[in-house]
Simulated scan of single mutants.
Amino acid sequence: MVLIILKKRIPIASGLGGGSADAAATLIGINKLLNLDLSDSELLKIGSSIGSDVPFCLIGGTAIVEGKGEKISPLESLKDIWIVLMKPSYNLLTKDIYKKYDKIGSPCLNDIDKFMKSFSEKELLKKFSMIENCLEKIVEKDHETISILKKKAMESGALAAVMTGSGPTVVALCEDFDSALKVYSKLSKEVDEIYVSKTCSKGVEIFS
């Protein structure tokens, strides 16, 4: 029997993959705690059976994820990109957003191949404005908060702002820490939850 005490830091139903990250951490932890010696491929297979985002959370870093989340192509890692996460007061269920998406179809215009053509950390800073979330326009139909937060983040100096996952959190990507703090201070009264963070190059890590 294993007793797990979980302290949630990532808001639930926010489009940030908190549940998937918890599942990935649990798999890694149990594998080590019980000396199961499961290989990475075995952990990925188990993770895929739990949820579409779990395999990526096991690997982390920067990657193209395809299929149902099981096809992961690692890219040059983008670390220490400063971001501001803005979570509105309401929650959204992923299944509901995808149902609407299936009815409407993809509203995205950007070409992922074009975006990835000269992918590197230096180039990405110039390409942030190309980032798009195909679910965003669907959510915006019922929640204008998304477009308002994006607009205000850009006006505050963000390089780009986009909804995360199935929403409703909006992430603002910033050039440096000072820029992130400026966005944070400008929008801190607009949402219930707001955080300054940065990207990392790894998935789950064990600290002992």
Rank of each mutant, 00 (worst) to 15 (best):
Gly105Ser: 05
Ile59Leu: 14
Ile59Thr: 13
Tyr90Ile: 10
Lys32Thr: 07
Ser120His: 06
Ser77Lys: 13
Lys95Glu: 10
Ala63Thr: 02
Ser118Pro: 00
Ser52Tyr: 03
Lys79Tyr: 10
Leu109Pro: 01
Pro88Gly: 00
Ser106Thr: 03
Asp40Gly: 06
Leu85Thr: 04
Ile64Asn: 09
Ile97Ala: 04
Lys114Val: 10
Ser120Val: 01
Asp113Ala: 08
Lys114Gln: 09
Ile50Glu: 05
Gly67Glu: 08
Leu27Asp: 05
Lys71Ser: 06
Glu121Asn: 14
Ser41Thr: 15
Ser120Arg: 07
Tyr90Asn: 04
Asp111His: 11
Ala63Trp: 02
Leu85Asn: 00
Leu43Glu: 07
Ile59Phe: 07
Asn31Ser: 13
Ser49Arg: 10
Ser118Phe: 02
Glu66Ala: 10
Ile112Gly: 03
Leu109Ile: 03
Asp80His: 09
Gly105Asp: 05
Gly105Trp: 03
Glu66Trp: 03
Ser120Lys: 12
Ala24Phe: 13
Ile46Trp: 15
Gly51Met: 04
Tyr98Arg: 08
Val65Gly: 14
Lys103Glu: 11
Ser39His: 04
Asn91Glu: 08
Thr94Phe: 11
Pro55Lys: 01
Lys103His: 02
Thr62Gln: 14
Tyr90Arg: 10
Leu93Phe: 13
Asn110Cys: 05
Asp111Ile: 13
Asn35Cys: 15
Thr62Ser: 15
Ile72Met: 08
Asp102Lys: 09
Asp113His: 12
Trp82Ile: 00
Leu109Tyr: 05
Pro107Ser: 00
Ala23Gln: 07
Met116Phe: 13
Cys57Glu: 08
Asp22Met: 15
Thr62Asp: 14
Asn35Gly: 15
Gly47Asp: 06
Lys32Tyr: 14
Ser89Asn: 08
Tyr101Thr: 01
Gly51Ser: 08
Asp40Trp: 09
Lys103Met: 02
Ile28Ser: 07
Ser48Val: 07
Val65Leu: 07
Asp80Cys: 01
Lys114Asp: 14
Glu42Tyr: 09
Gly61Thr: 01
Val54Met: 08
Ala63Ile: 01
Thr62Phe: 12
Val84Pro: 06
Phe119Asn: 06
Ala21Arg: 10
Leu78His: 08
Lys114Trp: 08
Gly29Trp: 13
Gly51Pro: 07
Cys57Leu: 11
Lys99Phe: 04
Leu78Gly: 06
Ala23Asp: 10
Ile46Leu: 15
Leu93Trp: 15
